[in-house]
Design a protein around this nucleic acid. Sequence first.
DNA 1: AGCACGCCGACT
DNA 2: GTCGGCGTGCTC
Length: 734
Amino acid sequence: MYLIQAAVPVPLRQLFTYTHDSSLEHGVRVVVPFGKRELVGIVMESKPVGSDQEKAATDGTLKAVQCVLDTKPLIPDELLSLGKWLSDYYLHPIGDTLLTMLPSWLRKNKSEQEIMSLVNQQALKILPEGKDALSTIPANAKQQKRLLNALREKSALLSDVKQRFSNAVINALVDKQWAVQYQQNLEAKVDWQDKLTLGNKPIASREQGAAIGVITSQLTTFSVSLLDGVTGSGKTEVYLQVIETVLLRGRQVLVLVPEIGLTPQTVERFERRFGHPVGVLHSKVSDKKRMQIWLAAKSGKLPLIIGTRSAIFTPFYQLGLIVVDEEHDDSFKQQDGLRYHARDLAAVRAQRLGVPLVLGSATPSLETLNNALNGRYQHLHLSARAGGANPVSQYIQDMRNHPVQGGIAEHLIEKMQQHIQAGNQVLVFLNRRGFSPVLLCHACGHVEMCHRCDRPMTWHKAKRQLKCHHCDAQRGVPNRCDHCHSDSLIADGLGTEQLEQALQGLFPSVSIARIDRDATRTKDALEKRFDEIRAGKHQLLVGTQIVAKGHHFPDVTMVVIVDVDSALFSADLRAAEKLAQLVTQLAGRAGRAEKPGEMWLQTHHPGHPIVQELIHNGYAHVARGLLAERQSANVIPFSVQAIVKAESHEQYKVQKALQLARSALPPAHIISAIGPVQTLIEKKQGRYRMMLIVRASSRKALNLALRHLLSAMTASKEAKQVRWSLDVDAIDLT
DNA sequence: AGCACGCCGACT
DNA sequence: GTCGGCGTGCTC
């Protein structure tokens, strides 16, 4: 008799022990009874029954494994141990962690046969008659000729062919016996190495060459390189050439991209370069396809995987390199359930496998930049822009006492008019990230601050009060500015919708395109909107974050950033970093060499160091300045943090639960706790929300403290009455 | 998370 | 007199 410890998909931080008449390997899936239910569990430990005590348990308290789904483990040890690490680090239940990591096919009660049948794929290959026919094929059979040509060098999976050719074309080739369908075993030995088309590459610039050289000289050990290069400096070419070297050595490559960055064009570029299908993973890939790619990557059949966040959980036969493009992008952090950061996890995986990690960005996150500056990461620079100098000049619009219409300075409205009349596009950008309205003096720019925390007070319109989100101090709204005694106190609070309306009033004959999450719910709607913009259907573009990601706007010659101040005076300590990244990304994406553009930042604080640095010295300087501030305030990345969030219909319950959480923490000299304080969005769907920020100087101390907190929370009645969650390395304060 | 048990209000 | 509301408790 054996004791089997299994991870079961429930939100409980423990394994469950079952009995079985034989030993089971780690990673084997089993069906186990669980309460009144049957669940698919994953074997984590297996040992023979030893002590009498254990023997007694086998015929009493323990239940038996119901059935074993796999004859050999489908889940490799590497993933299993990564799962354990994740569960420990993010303090997330192990069963749910594995659930998040694995394709849904493995979590459902799918038999081994059913899963393995996926690796026997229908494929299409050309016959000698087909090759002969290529020269004699009638001119009107265009598609048939195209498909034959595609098959000439190598056969293709039927599912891939079907995406590009109709059934009629495929059937025609089979009927004429020019091509034949056959079973291809995707688990067969690695065979792509000699099929790659390599060497077809542009000559690298001196800087690119240097970066490629540094990375490829150490492909057999763990290292992290930050590829720090402005938009258009050719980061992708560096990736491609490094990837080529890795593939040549028979190793696989994983490329992670932000959610919005994975376009068909990107995939095509990789496929064209290497002449081999790429495994593509994102939220829209079907469960079946996902399972296929998972198996193909695991067996070594797929040389290259490109995917979003969750692709970091792909198993590999022999991984040789991980690339994370646009590493600063927040979409790499999962915001619910297992709140992992794919970029951080990429570093963990690369280290465990002893392979290099390349992080690319024009605007590196402060976490990554700090690691590059302190020498933990290699810092590789690409400064040259392929098309010459940055075509966008940046200016400050001083808003103090300046007449404003619809949130835009009159001076800029005139300029916008000129640009539109010249046949160009104008982009009006509203920065709403980490937005919390502050009380601002329109005459002098003074912002009402908390006397205790020296942080801006948040304006609560309904309660007619100012509140500090750091210490919960509050006071009434003053009538006059504390500083210059002017009575023109204003609160910013414009949304994209209102902005669009106001602009339509100002420019009645102009077509306005709104680009934000609300207007473009689906990815298709977003693509469609971008196509319209490229086609010149709209002259005025109004957008949020989303426009700064991935897309180029060649006809935009003027960019207006409406509200810089809300980022300078945000309760979110990352707001300034995000603003700097946005402005820089936008500047890189608007205009082109022969059509120089201008960018305007509207602010009541023209002298603010962040604004000044951004305009005159660029992101790299701002980022270093922000890092220095973070260091003196001893916040991330100079300390580590986690956030406990709670919500309930009753506000006092939220307070109580988080206060209990706080009281479970070690003393203040080890851990500093802030809160319970307001979340940036205080009430959502009728539920009051608050958070407790927990800071420590080391990951170890934080982890330990959170374990105390967790055991107190799971045992307490107060916590059971609220919805609560724990977010290690949290970046979301909403 | 599910899925039970359990003890109080409006219905055949 | 039952049906069903969701509070509390357990799952090897």
